[in-house]
Design a protein around this nucleic acid. Sequence first.
DNA 1: TTCATTGTATTAATAATATAATACAGTAAT
DNA 2: ATTACTGTATTATATTATTAATACAATGAA
Lengths: 128, 128
Amino acid sequence: MKIYNDFKIDFSSAVPIYDQIKKHIKYLVLSGDLKENEELPSVRKLASFLKINPNTVAKAYRELVFEGVVDSRPGKGFWIKKRKGGDGEKEKILKEEFEKFVEKAVELGFSSKELREFLIKFIGGKDA
Amino acid sequence: MKIYNDFKIDFSSAVPIYDQIKKHIKYLVLSGDLKENEELPSVRKLASFLKINPNTVAKAYRELVFEGVVDSRPGKGFWIKKRKGGDGEKEKILKEEFEKFVEKAVELGFSSKELREFLIKFIGGKDA
DNA sequence: TTCATTGTATTAATAATATAATACAGTAAT
DNA sequence: ATTACTGTATTATATTATTAATACAATGAA
């Protein structure tokens, strides 16, 4: 199962274990290594593989359910949820992130003209 | 003193008080409302104004010193530090924020070509 | 020196968060 | 019904972060 590949918890990290799990799964979903309707390892299986408490996996899964990444079927397991926008979903997320960036630029006092100039400089100056 | 304007602590916020203070002061510095060599209210003055513990203000100021935003003079007070880059400082911060955004785009699986197209769409589609 | 400020450091109390232990409940095969 | 899985909920523990209480030390004026 793809999810096990290179999946190790960094116990010395400041980022919580449940968060490392969330990020790992999200990354696999976005990269296409975990496809829709694919089953995830059970809470206990993944926990014993990672040598952590099942509850920690459960927490990660629970939050992924809340964020719409996976679905739970009590007594059965967890499955990767069908992404709404398919490929457009990624662009939607990118758009949200970009809007946050624009907001910060505004806070810094940049006008929309100045911001556009900043971006043009980036676009022009990168490889092609 | 400019710093007092609209400066209220949101006690129900998840953002720590000392962090609210840091953000407020940084914002005033970047917007130009707090100029270099301007004195900040003393730890105790600001604390009593905000109705919080002096130590919380001290912590905020301490971190601002560490980040190079203000200078401390024991027994005297705190002053806004002279910004190195002057106006270029703002652009430096914008650049950092933009790099974080690019990193997220990469995580999402965007190629640099796709990212450029995304940005061009934004630049073209905004007012002018 | 004395006084009233100032910033600083140490420690304690509190709150928030992360993780673990345990018990409970759903599903399906036998 | 029994068994062996599943997810879920409750509670407890450990850790960390945040805030507060208090004492200490620097500055400058009277």
